[in-house]
Design a protein around this nucleic acid. Structure first.
Lengths: 227, 227
DNA sequence: GCGGGTCTTATTGTCGACAATGTGGTTTGA
DNA sequence: TCAAACCACATTGTCGACAATAAGACCCGC
């Protein structure tokens, strides 16, 4: 699995940093469900630290909008509404379209090879496994992360991975944007890679925008069926 | 002046929140120059609080990438390299182009009227004042903020205003992206508003992208002249 | 029985002190 | 004279206790 975060895991981490990473992971993995209240004392005990570092970690999660805080009351896991999710997908369409364009322009041959290898791997898995939901979802993330990194634009990468994707991942089990169309999404991935390999930046951007737009429409359909 | 921040100033603010806003303002206004070291004890005394709330504020600033922290050493005001600034402008081009498109689609008549009034105001000021640098820059921000809000997309607004603009504003006095072309930029603003008023979303996006692209190229030119 | 008000209590906000770590200067040896 | 090791200092990281605030329970009056 490609590295799923941009945090620096090598440096001597402080207690607040450990708690931040652990809490973010717990939230994104769904272990702590949206709307759940987070007591400071309870969390401090759970992570084996005091309330000081814990509060610093909560402030950072608040800045990433993974938790919502009301003064003198406490923090809750942020709950993403359908409307907010669709907004994020619109932004994703613009940003990842740009990322695909830049990837077609600046990705190294090595990176392209890795991307192709990833898709080949997915093809194998898909042929083997009937229940592809989870792996497909993780593999889907891996694909997108590689394209984003391939843009070689740090600001863009930090915005997409550091801001938007954490929020989206919170809901991957609920929404499962690709659940209804795994093989379709896989085909789209292949065409995007072909465009990147051909250094066709216009096509790469267009295909990526369509790809994400399809996922968004899938969510909208899902939204109409389930209130 | 249109509100320049998305923070909630009405709620009963806690000490850490006050420090966060004050520090962010001091950084963005250039009072604390990039690269300057921030001693916790000194800052705590300056803002009349203890180190606890101050550290929470620093964590939030760290998440916004306004300060850089190295464990057991301290925090410094983030220094934006020219390369990073150009990256941000590329992202701005994509995001604000999208914002202009959405503004053309969803801005209310009232908002459009406010935007036109703002431009009329700028025209007056520009005719009166020879030294338009500061006001033009502030007015320029006001214009862009209005268009962004006009998109009625919260995720997009928070990304642009909450993440990118603070970093850009840190450097407005140094780079003065519009210094060499105030009247040109003003004309571009007018055409963008015209496109929005005509509900021509394609044109609005294109003009906004060109507008920001021009600013970026101006910075690049400035970069080549000044090492 | 129900609405309003009060009080208790649990939780958050804040503070000062102590421990741990990095930095810079000093000293000592080659 | 220079380099490396050592040491003292300042600064950050962490902790526990106290104060302030809001939520909920309880009581009283209607």
């Amino acid at each position: 699995m490609y590295h799923l975060d941009i945090e620096d895991h090598t440096a001597r981490r402080t207690s607040a940093d450990r708690v931040f990473v652990a809490l973010q992971d717990a939230i994104v993995r769904g272990e702590l469900p949206p709307g759940a209240r987070l007591g400071e004392t309870e969390l401090a005990e759970r992570f084996g630290t005091s309330r000081g570092p814990l509060r610093e970690a909560l402030r950072r999660l608040e800045a990433r909008r993974l938790v919502e805080r009301t003064p003198h009351v406490g923090v809750r896991i942020a709950s993403l509404s359908y409307a907010s999710l669709l907004e994020i997908y619109l932004v994703r369409e613009a940003l990842e379209g740009m990322a695909a364009r830049l990837a077609a322009l600046y990705m190294t041959g090595e990176e392209v090879a890795g991307l192709k290898a990833l898709l080949a791997n997915h093809e194998q898995d898909e042929a083997l496994q009937a229940d592809t939901a989870y792996f497909q979802q993780e593999g889907n993330l891996d694909f997108h992360y590689r394209v984003i990194h391939g843009s070689h634009n740090t600001a863009l990468t930090e915005l997409l991975i550091g801001e938007l994707y954490h929020r989206i991942r919170m809901y991957r089990y609920q929404i499962s944007a690709y659940a209804n169309r795994p093989q379709k999404a896989f085909g789209e991935h292949q065409r995007i890679v072909e465009a990147i390999e051909a250094r066709d930046e216009d096509l790469a951007e267009m295909l990526m925008r369509r790809h994400i737009s399809s996922a968004r429409q899938n969510i909208e359909k899902h939204m109409k069926e389930n209130p």
